[in-house]
């Protein structure tokens, strides 16, 4: 593998690299060994500590937690997408008070912690715990999605909206038929990474008492005693990482697909119109 930051390694550089690799490997192995030794001395690696994981009921219980996580995340994702679209449309309304109000809603809810919104839903609005968790996720992520869509629309070539107006489309038609579909397409990777963020944020439900994966892992640890805390934690973390990693792969895949077709589409547009477009404003806009 070559990089512009360093030359293709010669004999001396390769030797140095091998030495550093060895040193690095020794340090990492040493740290892992030290950690394992420490764990072993605490009895955390004893088979008894990990034996609860052989019990299928434990797995059923943990997977129920994962299911609760996914259920809240899925419902919140759908509602947040819908509300995000509504907010994005309202931000382009012809009535300035509506525009102003939508912008204020987006700014305020984007700037608040999700836990606080969940907490607000549960203790102030009197929602059930599940509804409160979904409420927090929906309100926050709808604001972020509205902002992502706004950025996507702003990144489209001006001619798109102008052409649509020129053929007599109404304001709403311009938005729903011409601008939003293109904005969704260019911002798809960002939207998917935002759904990864949403899924991760579902774990905040732990704080307001929602019985999700982390809570179930904790309950299991309490049931089996503190020796089981590490195994249960490792399983919960591994489940979260696996699910999020898969969703993240999907985002990367969409980005690749989008950028290959999108790039040819862009160059075609540039050739036809002689203008430059700034499509693909970036997948970096997700807010964790």
């Amino acid at each position: 593998m070559t990089s512009v930051l360093y030359d293709v390694p010669g004999p001396a550089a390769r030797r140095r690299s091998r030495v550093w690799s060895a040193v690095g490997a020794v340090v990492v192995v040493g740290l892992v060994a030290a950690a394992l030794a420490r764990l072993a001395s605490q009895g955390a690696l004893a088979p008894e500590a990990w034996s609860p994981l052989a019990d299928p009921d434990v797995w059923t219980f943990l997977l129920e937690g994962l299911l609760a996580t996914l259920r809240a995340a899925a419902l919140a994702a759908v509602l947040a997408a819908a509300l995000g679209f509504v907010l994005a449309v309202l931000r382009r309304s012809s009535l300035s008070p509506v525009r102003w109000l939508a912008a204020a809603v987006v700014e305020v809810f984007r700037g608040l912690p999700v836990v606080l919104l969940m907490f607000l839903g549960v203790i102030a609005l009197g929602l059930s715990i599940f509804q409160g968790v979904v409420f927090g996720l929906v309100v926050y992520n709808a604001a972020v999605i509205a902002e992502v869509l706004r950025a996507g629309i702003a990144g489209l070539p001006r001619g798109q909206g102008e052409a649509a107006e020129a053929i007599g489309m109404s304001r709403f038609q311009v938005l729903s038929v011409v601008l939003l579909p293109q904005a969704v397409r260019t911002m798809l990777p960002t939207l998917v990474s935002q759904f990864v963020v949403l899924l991760k944020d579902t774990s905040l439900g732990y704080i307001v008492g929602y019985a999700e994966l982390l809570r179930h892992s904790r309950l299991m640890a309490e049931f089996f005693g503190s020796d089981a805390r590490l195994p249960m934690f490792v399983v919960a973390a591994a489940l979260y990482i696996t699910v999020n990693f898969l969703l993240g792969r999907l985002a990367v895949h969409l980005e690749r697909r989008g950028s290959s077709t999108g790039a040819s589409g862009r160059s075609l547009r540039r050739r036809l119109l002689g203008g430059t477009s700034t499509a693909g404003a970036g997948a970096a806009g997700a807010e964790r």
Binding site: P9, S17, W20, S21, K200, Y206, L214, N244, F245
Partner: peptide, 28 residues
């Protein structure tokens, strides 16, 4: 971005693992 493969592998692994772990789980 370093020329040493072990360091690159370490960096990539750390980023992929931690980025996909919810903050609540890290705190826990």
């Amino acid at each position: 971005v370093s020329p040493t493969p072990v360091l690159r592998a370490f960096g990539t692994t750390y980023v992929e693992l931690v980025r996909n772990t919810p903050l609540t789980v890290v705190f826990y």
